[in-house]
Design a protein around this nucleic acid. Structure first.
Length: 188
DNA sequence: GGCATGATGGCCT
DNA sequence: GGCCATCATGCCA
């Protein structure tokens, strides 16, 4: 994928990544769930400016930002927005397509639907940790290929955030069984 | 199905 | 000391 893909603001990149193929060392699948964050966003790690932890968010678009959450899980983001620093897209869930057996073993034999259904789970399945922080996602060991056709996108507030809880910057492939949580009903 | 809780690190006030 | 962009497990229904 061309680095220019990541030059747009975070919500646009988050939307456009739905359906893209994402692999680490040939293991992974199609992206079915993302969330956008930027520096004006009180839910974002970049909201209060650069720190040692979030330094990768201020790299050029197309770099990885990997951080540890709750002391034990990893979360994987891609820096975006060529106009303003501190924006990134969190990859939250994949539909597994490649290296399913290996992911199954790494995930302690979790069922297929839960192999990559959540930011911590997909990092475990793809063996992502802080060694990949600040690495360019346009190069090995990453493979990132744009979606062959536009997916049907559903949109909702983000999961697990308090500040900015109303901002609808979660993007999902509508109807996918591999989401971290079902899309909230947009009732009548 | 829902809800409560523990694990556990780094950053914040 | 409290708060997290989380997950697995246990209990109860």
């Amino acid at each position: 994928m061309d680095p220019a893909f990541f030059h747009s603001p975070a919500p646009a990149v988050a939307r456009d990544l739905i359906g893209a193929l994402f692999l680490v060392d040939g293991v992974g699948g199609r992206i079915v769930e993302t969330e956008a964050y930027d520096a004006d966003d009180p839910a974002s790690h970049s909201f209060n400016g650069p720190t040692a932890r979030n330094a990768a968010m201020f790299e050029a678009p197309g770099h990885a930002y990997v951080y540890r959450i709750y002391g034990l899980h990893w979360c994987f983001n891609i820096v975006c927005d060529a106009q303003r620093a501190g924006a990134a897209v969190l990859i939250r869930a994949l539909a597994p397509t490649a290296g399913v057996d290996l992911m199954h073993r790494r995930r302690d034999l979790a069922p297929l639907r839960q192999l990559c259904a959540g930011p911590g789970r997909l990092c475990q399945a793809l063996a992502i940790d802080d060694r990949l922080n600040r690495a360019p996602v346009t190069q090995a060991p990453f493979t990132l290929v744009a979606a062959p056709r536009p997916a049907t996108i559903a949109q909702s507030p983000r999961i697990g955030v308090r500040a900015g809880a109303e901002t609808p910057w979660r993007f999902c492939e509508a109807g996918s069984p591999f989401l971290s949580r079902p899309m909230r009903e947009a009732s009548a």
